[in-house]
Design a protein around this nucleic acid. Structure first.
Lengths: 207, 207
DNA sequence: TAATTTTCTGACCATATGGTCAAAACTATG
DNA sequence: CATAGTTTTGACCATATGGTCAGAAAATTA
């Protein structure tokens, strides 16, 4: 029997099929949210049969859980890299750039996350109150120390972080809207965004 | 027979029940998205029976369509009020404040909209490419003119608008996350946000 | 108050959906 | 290649869901 959630002791087929399912599920869950997605859609998307999918995962919930599980780590990665620096403004702008790049390169992951949060985070709230809060508190303290020592303008570190999340993820989550508004200028939206955000955060933070 | 989408020539009962249904539907659609929401949930929420709901609306799609229809106008209202001014920075900051107030006062509307956009805006894309784009082009031109005449710092007006949408709507759409991170400081989140955003946009825009 | 119209409901239907299972097909290995 | 183990599937089930309809209940009008 299969159904291994861990990556240990898996056969080639197990690894391949599990990945194929998660890849397809990411697409489907990101587009329709948990309740709106169906196993049949994931089956169609992955080219596997429904029973075959349920051979590898214990159900719809389990697939979704595994996706969220893998996602959170990746998602917090850019923020983890925010470290102390002699040039805090550059450090924060670099974080903004990394985060924007993630919206460009992993839009589905961003939407999966967004769907979950908007709908009240029923299956990830614990992680938010744990991992996410801890990490954010940590980095907010760092930013606060820069603020206190006059290395950056005095601002609320938490809301600075929120604004960075909001502005960068916007380009993944609201991509259709961004494209609709920019229409012919939409192709270079990520480069434009990078330039704008860099300008904005430099202006905001530079003492 | 009922099923009037217009507000004309309605009886008292028609008006009341239609509103009750839309109110309940807003709650449900905002929380679960279109595909995730069920008529039974709307029935339970509104205290009406399912057939009774379908007596007033031609189906799930029709309820959702009516909600989106009413929403778009309200939603674009704050941006419409952005007019020419001798103090463009104040004008834009006032817009930010209005938009943030909408997130505070109408979080469900914000989430309804967010759900729709994230999921690819299948039933509102036309409006985005029409009304929304037209209005945004209009206001972007205004901001550009301020930029050109040196009344505000030179910035990309479209991405400025995107950033305002992103940062303000974030407090409605990602409310659970904001609360989880701020925990005990969460109660005053809208006041904190107002102060932070005002600081950020003043720094960004003031020449 | 009787007739007429509007509103509401229980019972029902067709389809969609999450999930199961026995057996078939396939793979790896002694 | 035979056997043991793994993977896959068609057929199936129970429940959920969008929606219908004939008639009952309530409201309105004559």
């Amino acid at each position: 029997m299969a159904r291994a959630a861990s990556t240990k002791g898996q056969t080639r087929i197990q690894r391949e099929k599990t990945e194929a399912i998660l890849e397809a599920a990411l697409e489907v869950f990101a587009t329709y949210g948990f309740r709106g997605a169906t196993i049949d859609q994931i089956a169609a998307q992955s080219g596997l049969s429904k029973p075959n999918i349920l051979y590898y995962f214990d159900g719809k919930e389990a697939i979704h859980a595994e996706l969220l599980n893998r996602l959170l780590t990746t998602w917090l990665e850019p923020l983890k890299h925010l470290g102390d620096s002699d040039a805090p403004v550059d450090e924060i702008c670099a974080y903004v750039a990394r985060k924007l790049a993630m919206s460009r390169d992993y839009p589905r992951e961003s939407r999966l996350f967004a769907n979950e949060i908007i709908q009240g985070a029923p299956r990830i709230l614990i992680e938010l109150e744990g991992q996410l809060k801890t990490l954010t508190d940590d980095k907010a303290a760092l930013i606060q120390s820069w603020s206190d020592t006059g290395k950056i303008n005095p601002i609320d570190p938490y809301h600075l972080i929120f604004s960075i999340w909001a502005t960068t993820q916007h380009y993944a989550d609201f991509d259709v809207q961004v494209r609709a508004v920019l229409s012919d200028k939409a192709d270079s939206r990520f480069d434009q965004a990078a330039a704008f955000l860099d300008t904005m955060y430099r202006a905001t933070l530079t003492p």
